[in-house]
Amino acid sequence: MSITLAVNGALATVAAEPRTHLADLLRGELLLTGTHLGCEHGVCGACTVEVDGAPARSCLIHAGACGGASVRTIEGFAEDAVMAALRESFSAEHALQCGYCTPGMLVVARDIVLRLPDADEARVREELAGNLCRCTGYRGIVRAILGVLAARRAAA
């Protein structure tokens, strides 16, 4: 089937079997390999991208359902100010090691920062429960997000 969707602000028309999920479409057809795949059943969070303005599992949206959707992958946040602050903070706090979980972590981290400006450590940990990291032990990730939240509160 032919599918037209917006990816990182540009319209793309791709041919794919209906069973292809969005992550494979992004990686295989559009060569946007920043989106990673871990479990392919919704549990690990590595594949999380923004769909129609909200984080979603790209492994659980099959091609047909993508028609008309607006998708933002990690590559699409290059110019985003919140993401820039998170990148800095992730780097400063050693919030990544191998980096496999990082694209999904960042998409979820940005959602936490924008949706829950008053989140404390317990809430950040709760919100991160759907993103698995095998390397860092999460402490750096939690600190990085709390740092951006605190900086934004101080600037407000």
Binding site: G42, G45, T48, V51, A54, P55, A56, R57, L60, I61, V108, D111, E127, A129, G130, N131
Partner: peptide, 9 residues
């Protein structure tokens, strides 16, 4: 229920 990215769909 689940996680926010799952709840969004």
């Amino acid at each position: 229920i689940a996680y926010r990215p799952v709840r969004n769909r």
